[in-house]
Every structure is written in C-alpha cells, then in structure tokens.
Design a protein around this nucleic acid. Sequence first.
RNA 1: GCGCCUCUAGCUCAACGGCAGAGCAACGGACUCUUAAUCCGCAGGUUUCGGGUUCGAAUCCCGAGGGGCGCACCA
Length: 484
Amino acid sequence: MRTAVIPYRFDKDTPAGTIAERFGALEPGQGSGQVVSVAGRIMLNRPQGKLAFATLRDETGEVQLFSLEASTEDFEALTKLHLGDWVGATGEVVRTRRGELSVQVATWVLLAEARRGFGDKWKGVSDPEIRYRQREVDLWANESTRTRLDIRAKVLRSMRERLWALGFTEVETPLLHPIPGGAAAKPFTTHHNALDTELFLRVAPELYLKRLVIGGMEKVFEIGRSFRNEGISPRHNPEFTTIELYQAYIDYTDLMVLFEELVAGICLDVLGTTVLSYQERELDLTPPWRRASMWELIEEATGTSVSMATPIEQLRELLVAAGAKVDDSWGPGRLIAELFEETAEAAQWAPVFVVPYPKEISPLSRVHRDDAELVERFEPIIAGRELGNGFSELIDPDDQRARFEEQAQAHASGDDEAMLVDEEYLRAMEQGLPPTGGFGLGVDRLVMLLADTANIREIIAFPTLRPEVLLRSVEVETTEATEA
RNA sequence: GCGCCUCUAGCUCAACGGCAGAGCAACGGACUCUUAAUCCGCAGGUUUCGGGUUCGAAUCCCGAGGGGCGCACCA
C-alpha cells in the first residue's frame, strides 16, 4: 500500500456520469485534448501488463480509468488498488482502441482505502442482515438501494414544494412530550435529568399543530418522525415519518380533495405519471378517488348488510365469524370498524376514502353534522393499506374534555393505547380553535408505493433492528492502555 | 409477544448421516486495448453458539442467539 499521506481535499471537476455526454463524439483511439479530474470508488480493476483498466464509479455513474506504465504516475500501485478504494484521478479524456470512453490517468491519488470490500463483485450482497445493518455496503453493492432512497428524497421535496406553493408554513413541534397524545399508540418513555421528569417520544404531532392554528397560523404542516413502541413488521418501523397538515376554515370534504391532489401530484413529480405499477399490479392514483362508507365496503366484501343500527349482538357474531377477537366493551362503532378491517380493508386496491367514521373510535374528530354517532373523518386506503387519516377537527373544548375522559377511563381499565386527559391542550382549545381540517399521511407508506417495495426497511436508510452485539474486548484493552 | 422458515470462507452459494468444496474477493506471479479480462500459484473454516443421538453430525433432535416471513397492532 502507498505510504503517501491522504490529501485533505481533491479538486474533482467532472462527474463520471457526464463524460459520455460531453465526449460521446470521440472516435476509437482518439484523444480529446481535454484534461479532467474525476473521483470515486474503484469498482473493477483489470491490469494488463504495462497498461491497466479500472472502472471508477461516483454518484453520477461510471467511467473507465486507462493507465499506461509509460505515462501514469505510480503505475504499479494503481494496478494494485482494491475494489472499493476511493481515488481521485486526473488525465485526458480518450476513447480506447476498443471503443471505451476513458480518462487516461496522468496523476492520481488514493483518497480512502476500502479495507473490507463490498462483497462479490458480480452478485454484490444480498444477505438482509448486511443490507440493513451496514447500509453503506448495500448502497454501493446494490444500485436499486440508492434508487429507493432517491425516491424518498424526491417525495419529501415534492411534498414541501407543493405545500409551499399552496401557502402552507412548515413548522417543527416537540418530539419530547409530557403526555403522549394525538394518536392511540404505546409510547416510548424517557427521562429528563435536570427537570427530573418523565417524558414521552411523540406518537403524533397533532395536538401541537392545532395549537399553532389556535395561535393564528391558518395553514401549517410538519414533516417529521413519530415513535410508537409497538411491533416491527414489513410495514412498521418503530420510528416513522409522517406529514401532518392543518388548515383553518376547511372541512373533511375539502381535505379529501387536498389529500388526493397532493398524493397524485407527488406521484407525478417523482414518477412522471399517476398510474404506477405496485407489486406487479397496476395502481391508478389519478383523482378523484372513490368515497365509500365502511358498511358499503363491508357489504361489497361479504354480502352482508350492516349499519350503525345493526343490533350489537349481530355485529359481534359477524366479527367472530370473520375470525377476530371481540371485546365486551366495544360499541357498534368499534365493532363495525373492526369488521371493516377484518373483511374489507385488505381487498381495497384502488384508492378509496373510507368515510365517515364512528365517533366511538375517533376522540379528536368533530361530530358529523348529520349524525351524532358519526364523525367527519376519513381514511384513505390504497393497495389494502391505510395511507393516512383526516378529519374535521373537534373544536368544542367541552366535547373534547368528555372524549379525553372516555379515553382515560379506557386507559385506566387496561387499554394502554388509549389517550389521557391533556389539560394543556384543553386550555389551548379554550382560546378558540376555528373550524379546521387536518390530515396525517404516512410518508414511509407513500414512498413504499412509489418505490414499489413490500418492506418498509427498503425505503428507510437505517431501519430499526435488534442492536448488534460486537465483541470489543481487545479495543477496550487498547483504550485503557492508552489512557493509563 | 406467538407460529413457520433460515444461518456453511470476506461475499454469492454447493455438499443434506461418511475426508467441508466452488466462483468472486484477498495474497504471490505472467500479460501493451481490457469490459464480471485471462492464465499460473497460494491461502482462507470451532459449518452462528451450547447440549444430545450416532461408529461417524454442517446434515438428525433439543435449547439459545441473529435475520426473514406470517399473525397481532398501527401509519
């Protein structure tokens, strides 16, 4: 290995991927007279006696390095580079006799050594253990990994640009909450030493965002992480990204339009079409999406007609017949919602807004203007999965207090996902929340659709895994010796 | 949390009750137009770990650990 000191900077002036476009007209065996500096990783190395070929890859693409013992500095060392080593190289752009556009290296410098390599040079790395735990390896070994992360970045960018264009203000609210609120979920718990107080990682930003609306921010959104202390699955990561959006003076019908337009618009920005292929099946996101009630969809799926007026015993029987558990405390609303999830939800492929929702399972939604048992809430279902949740916000502080108290009672009797009474939020509501519509959207789920992945880990750079146990005793001894 | 599947060289994989192997990477060498270059040579392993059955275990059984999938829960 070369003993030269690794430089602190390198004047890279040409992305590898731009060379083909700029110098495509060169004939085989011809030089361009143009000297460029490229930098990246050695992906393949083909020394051939007194000349050598190597494939250099950077973020933009690949280019061949062509070296000659007679004219390339430190030729011997160049031919001994390892796959994965970072190098910077400077030389004329030429096309070799065999027709490959190349940088004919005059000078070069090692920028980093790859001591570990990147797996099989042809097959790469496929072991999920390595792919998820050592994403840096996966990113280099598998091009599609980079593509998926790029799609995620484009989704976030498009989302922001579209909302900015609509006049929304992006805000940030606390991740550390004194009371977990805004969603039915088990929180992570932590502790602040100086305040000597228990804090929770947020399960949803909802309540803080509505307080900003109370404070006069009429159109706000937040894109960020929430945390739920629940199971991990191909569709669930303990930390996940959502966008929540609130706009004063609009209701749930306006929200559905906003939602479908936003999702379809993002899809158009990222993929150039609103008709995509997901898991080898066509999925058309072109608005408007269907609006349908739970009972309508249940009837379609099962042939059985149900409604909020169906006798509770019958609903219980149907749910048991569908193979689900039934809790005695559940009213008709919860039973119908469970029945829907059990029998009809997974079958919804094309986008559909399930609307309205039972009041019983919606502690933050405003009562439906036409039916006291319902709320003005919807959930968009795409490819069998909930993509989000939205509603006309509950604005009456007295009603909100009553709903919180119901939740707190459920919590006290063992439902550890039920909410608690949030006095801070109730006080804020008493300042006056105008009629407001708000929705949340699972960003990871949306990215999964656009990136065509069935597993959420594929579109999260570093998904949550059980911590790795590395044997470090030798390093610890070294450290102690140094300190002593 | 429960169920099913899986774990062999750095990577990708064979061997499936009878001497643990190949390709790539690595290491040494040859080669003046290669494209997963080619050729010669060399090295690489507590078969995830711990028990058990057996004359003999990577292989069969039990347990532990990591991972994947399904269920549950949700976005």
